[in-house]
Nucleic acid binder design. Structure first.
Lengths: 196, 196
DNA sequence: TCCGTGATAGCAGTGACTGCTATCAGCGTA
DNA sequence: TACGCTGATAGCAGTCACTGCTATCACGGA
């Protein structure tokens, strides 16, 4: 046994979310989180760059998984299909824990700082997917266009799903979103003047 | 003449940008900005909710203009064409002042807080455009899909343009981005299974 | 002439985050 | 067995964004 309890990051994250749920994000201080995890405030800020980050560890893991899925997709898969498959997989995972998603979404929606960070993390997620596409040969700007767009559709699908998580299928919302977007873009007046 | 100099917000914004350029965003304190504009720190934080906001006034004006353009577009204009026209107009405006765009972009790129706020402001911009679309009868999720996607393509076009502002045409980059995205989405395996 | 109004000055916090130093368990090494 | 090295934590002190409260003062109207 070490001198201190194991898994300090995990303990801090757990303590933080418990406190955020109980009394709100703003009302929870770094010192309180640290104390609940049995450590010093200073250790909290050494392990997490700021108070918001505690919330987004899972997203980074999800990003790595998505990137791996994209890189490992069959060679003949179109870029948009590779990212769509990765995000559809994520839809399925999220749908398995509607309660957790709801709690998380509630906390994020209630706080402007967390909303901003959420946006920023999802942008990073999209950037990672674009990088994965490039690794498999997709050129720019196609890689970024596909990744950012798929992420955008995912977020729209998620926002619709979270309203009634029990009565809608998230992967279907996502797929239908992509289809609807395709038809929106195709029926546009600019279609003819592709290169000028 | 009033008791104080006129246009306090404008003076503060000017002082702030000058200091940000000279010594960086982080190194500039609210008190310094206020002092340079000849007022008290407290007044700065009464006029701007936080230090970052000084930077994004112009964007809110642009958003209002874009929303108006969308609402006022001819009735038979497709949603995507309405938002695309509004953003193309914005492209043209930005291109008229490449120096300003470059300075601004440099400052934002150099600071994580400003990048986050930039993301958040553009998300708000897209939300506003979706609202404008809804006002002219576009249903959801089409309105949000069109607005978010167009904004995404705009940002990608801007990022490419800012690399060499003198040698590329921003409106063209934006239009071509939309076209490329359309072709990416159409050539996707999921196309056939629109509704399941 | 007096008073309500609106905007600013100025003070006194709170809390996120940082730099620095002291401390201590575990471990390789002589 | 003793010693010093390493890596992680405790704890202190400080900066700065941001807030609530109060006093002040020019201006315009009754």
């Amino acid at each position: 046994m070490g001198r201190w309890e194991p898994n300090p990051r995990g303990r801090l994250a757990k303590a933080a979310v418990e406190l955020f749920v109980a009394q709100g994000f703003e009302q929870t201080t770094g010192a309180q989180i640290a104390a609940r995890a049995g450590m010093h405030e200073r250790s909290f800020f050494r392990l997490f760059p700021d108070k918001r980050e505690v919330f987004f560890q899972a997203l980074e893991t999800a990003q790595r998984e998505a990137m791996a899925a994209i890189v490992d997709a069959p060679e003949d898969t179109a870029p948009i299909d590779a990212v769509a498959a990765a995000l559809e997989q994520r839809c399925a995972v999220i749908q398995q824990h509607p309660g957790a998603a709801l709690t998380r979404h509630g906390l994020i929606a209630a706080n402007a700082e967390l909303r901003e960070r959420d946006l920023s993390k999802h942008a990073e997620f999209a950037t990672g997917m674009a990088e994965a596409l490039r690794e498999r040969g997709t050129p720019e700007p196609a890689a970024t266009l596909a990744a950012d767009t798929a992420m955008g559709v995912f977020r729209i699908a998620f926002d619709r799903w979270i309203g009634e998580p029990e009565h809608q299928d998230l992967p279907t919302l996502f797929r239908d979103g992509l289809s609807e977007l395709a038809s929106i873009l195709v029926h546009r007046a600019g279609t003819a003047r592709r290169s000028r």
